[in-house]
């Protein structure tokens, strides 16, 4: 019953918000973007002031009445101060920290006070996310990373950023809800698979993908070459006087693999993405260079955090419109 009434109301409210405060990556908290209402304590404070007014009348006590008026006036002044604590702040969407679907990601919000007064004790959160508190001093720009749960793969719109402040007196809360046009990115869930959906290997170097699974295996000893990392040196043999040798592993840096969407026929798309994700992580861990082929997209082979990031981003955005 209640829900039946509430749902259209909420929709109306959202539509109204969207008209009043359209999405933008940079917004200044101006008068039309700030709402202000008393908190529970503010209502309690007003109640006490009202009681004192009645008391003042009944005891014909002007001073009690004056105190009641002073409280009322203080409350009204507090409206201005609470408003000021939020007003003028420049809110910008910052960077994003993707996560795997089902886990958490984080979005960066930058708060810039380019005016001459501090903005203290601001509470920020995405709908459903935890609250972060931050204070911004004059001329300062603060970066806040706000975590949010990632429910599904792809671009995740976090909803409206909720900024609230009760400073200075806590009797009023000023808040704003901004659409920061700042989507989060959810990589696919990693799903392990036995079979590596990789094609080819490198023709020049002749590395077979079947060798991959054992690429960390110990292959033998070879004579030490300058530049071999000390952990690869066979110190035991050296101590026994057999000379300086390096342990020889299947060399991971010799070729590259193409992780390929097309290698998993008959598997549904999300599972394919999940498996590819798992393999990207695996290959990265094993220092194996890899490329990625998706329908309509290709990432040239490479290695390193940058490569992993690009591969995962590509997987996350598969099937989504390019922003």
């Amino acid at each position: 019953m209640l829900a039946a009434v509430r749902a259209p109301l909420q929709r109306r409210y959202r539509q109204w918000l969207a008209r009043r405060m359209p999405a933008s990556r940079q917004q200044r908290l101006t008068q039309q973007r700030i709402f202000i209402l008393p908190t529970r304590y503010g209502l309690f404070f007003l109640l006490i002031a009202a009681l004192l007014f009645l008391g003042g009348i009944n005891y014909e006590n002007n001073l009690i009445m004056a105190l009641s008026f002073l409280m009322t006036s203080l409350f009204m002044i507090a409206i201005l101060h609470t408003f000021r604590n939020l007003a003028g702040l420049l809110v910008r969407a910052g960077q994003l920290e993707p996560g795997h679907a089902g886990a958490e990601g984080a979005l960066e919000i930058l708060l810039h006070a380019d005016d001459r007064h501090p903005h203290l004790s601001l509470w920020l959160r995405w709908p459903g996310g935890p609250v972060e508190e931050v204070s911004v001093l004059p001329g300062e720009e603060k970066s806040v990373w706000l975590r949010l749960p990632l429910k599904r793969r792809g671009r995740v719109h976090p909803g409206r950023l909720h900024i609230e402040s009760r400073y200075p007196l806590g009797l009023l809360r000023a808040w704003s809800q901004l659409d920061m046009a700042h989507p989060a990115l959810a990589w696919p869930r990693a799903a392990p698979s036995e079979f590596c959906p990789a094609s080819g290997g490198d023709a020049e170097q002749g590395l077979q993908h079947t060798r991959l699974a054992g690429s960390d295996d110990f292959q033998g000893l070879r004579s030490y070459q300058p530049g071999d990392p000390p952990r690869m040196v066979d110190w035991k043999a050296y101590a026994r006087g057999r000379g300086l040798h390096s342990k020889y592993f299947a060399d991971p840096a010799e070729g590259w693999l193409w992780l390929d969407w097309a290698m998993m026929p008959g598997v549904d798309p999300e599972t394919r993405l999940s498996r590819l994700t798992w393999w990207v992580l695996q290959l990265e861990q094993k220092n194996q260079r890899y490329g990625l082929r998706l329908p309509g997209a290709e990432l040239p082979p490479g290695l390193g955090p940058e490569q992993q990031r690009q591969a995962l981003d590509l997987l996350a955005l598969y099937g989504e419109e390019v922003a």
Partner: peptide, 23 residues
């Protein structure tokens, strides 16, 4: 804040009608 509130308080003090005791 209190200094800012005082003029307003004085205004209320002078203008808000005094009613006789309710009880």
């Amino acid at each position: 804040m209190l200094l800012q509130a005082v003029p307003l308080m004085l205004l209320l003090f002078v203008l808000v009608p005094r009613i006789s005791p309710l009880w």
